[in-house]
Design a protein around this nucleic acid. Structure first.
Length: 277
DNA sequence: GTCCAGGTTTTTA
DNA sequence: TAAAAACATGGA
């Protein structure tokens, strides 16, 4: 029933973009990527040099073009980043199909609250249970990300089944802030970056790192450069002496290429405590 | 049993 | 003010 929309994107690889740690609800099955975002469901797959999106042209224009940031010139972005440092060139060439998604702000805030002191497989599991329990069900049986208004009315015990641990109260605090003040999200979009950061951090459970992730993935503030344990190691080993502020408006993009490159090359970080043989 | 995971808050010195 | 410890959970 839904049309199939084909586009030819030289700069969009679903595997690289959807599994590079910026979004947690996309899954691959026999080469087909499937997920729910912005209240809509989508499948996408490679067909030769093309990419097929299973959606109406209307939804493509209204939702997915924006979600996948398809109006931006990633060739130019990659060029600028590659010119900054040889290792950045390598990271960019390693996964040139990465794009920074424009995710729903509440979903990004909530997802990265869940990410704290946690690992990616478990983050995905918690978010999956969260959506199945509290998200609106679509005709296919898939679930939307839960509405903030609904979550704001819950207690931490209500979130027990999603096994989010001590993060439950933070999820609810964020939901209450967002649903209780309709100017909160718009203000984050419009405030200068330092103030936006501070405002996000007034929510209990959001510190500097979660705030930067929310700003980058949920508000497309590409001058944000979230630093987690991976990025800390990566900066020390791959870019010693460099400061993220040197990367300017491309910092967030650079961060994503470095993060993915580092995660795919753990052997570069022998000090890593998890390297147990 | 111990350590760690895309950190933050609370407690302690 | 700065450094530990605590926080839930589950896989290695």
């Amino acid at each position: 029933m839904s049309e199939s929309f084909v586009l030819i994107p030289p700069d969009f690889d679903p595997a690289q973009t959807l599994d590079c740690g910026q979004a947690f609800r996309w899954e691959e099955d026999k080469g087909v990527w499937h997920g729910v975002a912005m209240g809509k469901e989508l499948s996408l797959r490679r067909e030769g040099s093309q990419l097929r999106l299973d959606c109406s042209s209307e939804d493509f224009e209204k939702i997915w073009k924006d979600y996948f940031d398809l109006s931006a010139d990633y060739s130019a972005i990659r060029g600028r980043i590659a010119a900054m440092d040889p290792i950045l060139r390598e990271a960019v060439e390693y996964a040139p199909g990465i794009r920074i998604l424009r995710q729903d702000p509440w979903e990004a805030i909530c997802s990265f609250i869940i990410s704290q002191n946690n690992n990616i497989p478990r983050i995905k599991g918690i978010i999956k249970r969260f959506c199945e329990l509290f998200g609106e069900e679509l005709p296919s049986g898939a679930h939307c990300f839960p509405k903030a208004e609904l979550i704001a009315a819950l207690s931490p015990e209500d979130l027990g089944p999603i096994r989010s641990g001590f993060r439950a109260k933070y999820i609810i605090a964020a939901a209450q802030m967002i649903s209780g003040d309709e100017e909160f999200i718009p203000s984050i979009f419009s405030l200068p970056i330092e103030e936006a950061r501070r405002r996000l951090q007034t929510i209990k459970g959001i510190g500097p790192k979660v705030a930067d992730c929310a700003l980058l993935y949920g508000f497309h503030r590409t001058d944000c450069f979230p630093v987690d344990v991976w990025m800390k190691r990566a900066m020390e080993v791959l870019l010693p002496g460099r400061d993220p502020s040197e990367f300017g408006m491309d910092a967030g993009m650079a961060q994503q290429y470095i993060f993915h490159y580092s995660r795919m090359h753990p052997e570069l970080f022998p000090d890593k405590k998890t390297e147990r043989t």
